[in-house]
Amino acid sequence: MATFAVTNKPRGTQSLPPCGLAAFAAGMKAGLPIAIGYLPIAITFGLLAKSAGLPNVISALMSFAVYAGASQFIAVQLFSLGTLPWEIILTTFIINLRHLLMSAAISQRLPARLGKGLLAGLAFGITDETFSVAALQADETLPPAFLAGLNLIAFAAWNIGTWGGLFFATAVPPALQAGMGIALYAMFIGLLVPSCLSERPVLVVSLLAIAFHTGLRYLPWIPSLSTGWTIIIATMFAAALGAFLFPQEVQEDA
């Protein structure tokens, strides 16, 4: 099996094919763990939406046009509770607002001054998972075709899984569902830990983010916020503190 442990190489190494079909294929390959993680979750989403009485075409449309895991599950719940449309839309906005940070970070990793249409197309595929895989590539500049391949396999898995849940699956065995629930978290760990081992600032920033996020969720004197906000706040504070504490380290190889 191919290696994805690209983070073992120092930043700035050029290891991805520069363009075209080879870069696209490399992106699809790098997106494989995402597809493995997305399929069972999307099947579960399809099943859940069906059992909540949402029309199949609406659920399929949601995976196609919204394409954002957590907010889709919450939307199904809100639909079945009879929540007002604008409240569902506002909730979705807050949950997915964190992509602002990811989109901004990726903007600096693509070749400068790409066409607006291409950027707008690539932006549609930004999720926590595609962002993580893309951002942790060793290459300082990511070929747009790589991002396209990565985004496409993840998007395809999410939509195929949704259809599977809507039209084919009857039920996912609970034991298997629980096992699959860990998949994307394990992928995040597999991506993050090697970088933490090779660069101390990365370790410090990751631990800060974990500490901030845990504090925001569990400290009693902190007002309870939705996960959408706590992820944004913890990420921004940890990254800002990292930029303050380690002004040179990361710039040297920039």
Partner: peptide
């Protein structure tokens, strides 16, 4: 630092 912070 955003990717590492976001992953954490």
């Amino acid at each position: 630092f955003i990717p590492y912070a976001a992953l954490g």
